[in-house]
Design a protein around this nucleic acid. Structure first.
Lengths: 154, 154
DNA sequence: TGGGATAACATGGGATTTCATGGGAAACAA
DNA sequence: TTGTTTCCCATGAAATCCCATGTTATCCCA
């Protein structure tokens, strides 16, 4: 799973190192790289590996073919996503339009969120992280064990 | 499960031995190590193995995708967590920012709490343990057998 | 049940590898 | 050509691996 947060530099060619911990998460797919698309909630990018895209595909295909939500998801995710391959050193080249959407130029912050991750402008992320932390503290009680008991837990 | 309390030294490289009893709890995961993140309740660290993180992921994904609390929790847990691998002798290297959050430098106290554990500054923990004991004494009557027996718990 | 032998654990330091980053050359497109 | 993209190599810093060692706990056998 994608965990932790790391800020890496973007060089003049638009290249940025994907944190090593993220890379080791996506090996074994049909290509050596990640999927990235603009968030439709705000100025940051969403990303993940083949497994995530497979999950989204399953979810979409479980919906009615003419469900508006289905079409929105199809267009916003599959239509907007890019396959960004790693170079020999584990970097991707961030396309200009994606960089603009996220407002990143010199540095980019990778945030692991379990199954997926986000790419942020470092300053914007810092602001959001501060409020998120307080909010998480106030709302931690919303975390409930799934109704089904986790069997075989160790 | 994680039980007992142990205080181990932190060397100049930031390495600290994870108590052997804790280590034997997390073997068999995708990596040989633990997840650790800063508590959002105070100056100590929270930790656990793959099973705990899987449980958190299940709990978070049971929430509405656009619940602000969900996004806050995702960032505060998965975004803040680190995967700390064991070296050949069962040590982890505590990142500086985590050590600062917990206020540890020379020694760290590992506290087993069943499904997860905490890492404390030894003096701070001693203080809290005193008040926690008193609190437990006052509230011992709240301990009740679960209405439904926990299946498959080990 | 004592006491020596053995294994497990926590700790220290040096050597090696990985990681993030920079720049140049070659392939490609317009 | 001219600008862009991809591949390849170099480098410093940081993290990891490997070996050594004292100490504690456990085992085994008389």
């Amino acid at each position: 799973m994608f965990v932790s947060t790391a800020t890496n530099g973007i060089d003049a060619k638009g290249r940025v190192s994907v944190p090593a911990g993220f890379r080791s998460n996506v090996t074994g797919g049909p290509f050596d790289g990640i999927y990235v698309w603009p968030s439709f909630d705000g100025p940051w990018l969403e990303g993940g590996g083949q497994t995530l895209m497979d999950n989204y595909l399953d979810m979409v295909e479980a919906m009615d073919p003419y469900d508006e939500a289905r079409q929105a998801l199809e267009q916003s995710i599959f239509g907007a996503a890019r396959t960004l391959s790693f170079d020999a050193n584990g970097r991707i080249t961030l396309p200009k339009d994606l960089a603009e959407h996220a407002g990143v130029s010199n540095k980019a912050t990778f945030v692991g969120l379990g199954r997926r991750f986000e790419i942020w402008n470092p300053e914007s992320f810092e602001k959001r992280a501060t409020t998120a932390r307080a909010f998480a503290r106030e709302n931690k009680l919303k975390l409930r064990r799934p109704s089904r008991v986790a069997e075989g837990a160790s």
